[in-house]
């Protein structure tokens, strides 16, 4: 937990561009919502190829995977209810690529649609929040006792050293 907090603070306080952090959060969320499969690998490939902040991506991916333990069943039920559309089913039946991406599976389809809808707004919102943080909160946070304690801890020193 401390490591995770340290990672987040380190990234927020680093020189990484707000867009890099924003896209890392959005794509981490997208990868976390999706069940592990080819689509997840595609997102990982995008993250690897673009200069998206890797630490943030991994942290958000892990957190979202945890959250999906709660939300997977309702999302699956919702998709099952709304995906019974002849045109959509015909499209999925005729396109093997879509089946290869497991988009004929209710949870994958629902997660893909939800992720696709959320990715751009979340990236933009995260970028705005990072900028707001840096301009308004960062200096105060640096003075917090908790931050100083974290920075002084051996774990943080080790983390710094490894990075």
């Amino acid at each position: 937990m401390l490591t995770m907090l340290a990672k987040i603070l380190k990234v927020l306080n680093s020189q990484a561009s707000p867009w890099q952090i924003g896209w890392a959060i959005a794509l981490g969320l997208f990868a976390g919502i999706l069940p592990l499969g080819l689509l997840t690998l595609l997102i990982v490939l995008i993250v690897c190829l673009l200069t998206v902040n890797l630490s943030t991506f991994i942290v958000v991916w892990g957190l979202t995977e945890g959250l999906m333990l709660l939300f997977a069943t309702p999302l699956e039920n919702l998709t099952w209810q709304y995906a019974q559309n002849d045109t959509l089913l015909q499209l999925l039946a005729n396109t093997e690529t879509l089946q290869l991406l497991h988009l004929h599976h209710t949870l994958t389809l629902g997660a893909f649609v939800l992720g696709a809808v959320l990715v751009v707004p979340v990236a933009w919102l995260s970028k705005v929040l990072v900028m707001q943080y840096r301009s308004r909160v960062m200096s105060s946070v640096q003075k917090w006792k908790l931050t100083q304690m974290l920075k002084a801890s051996k774990l943080f020193a080790l983390y710094e050293k490894l990075n």
């Binding site: 699956e76 099952w80 089913l89 004929h104 209710t106 389809l109």
Partner: peptide, 10 residues
């Protein structure tokens, strides 16, 4: 098994 009922499922 939550696979959508595709027409002409392979």
């Amino acid at each position: 098994n939550r696979i959508l009922p595709l027409p002409g499922q392979p």
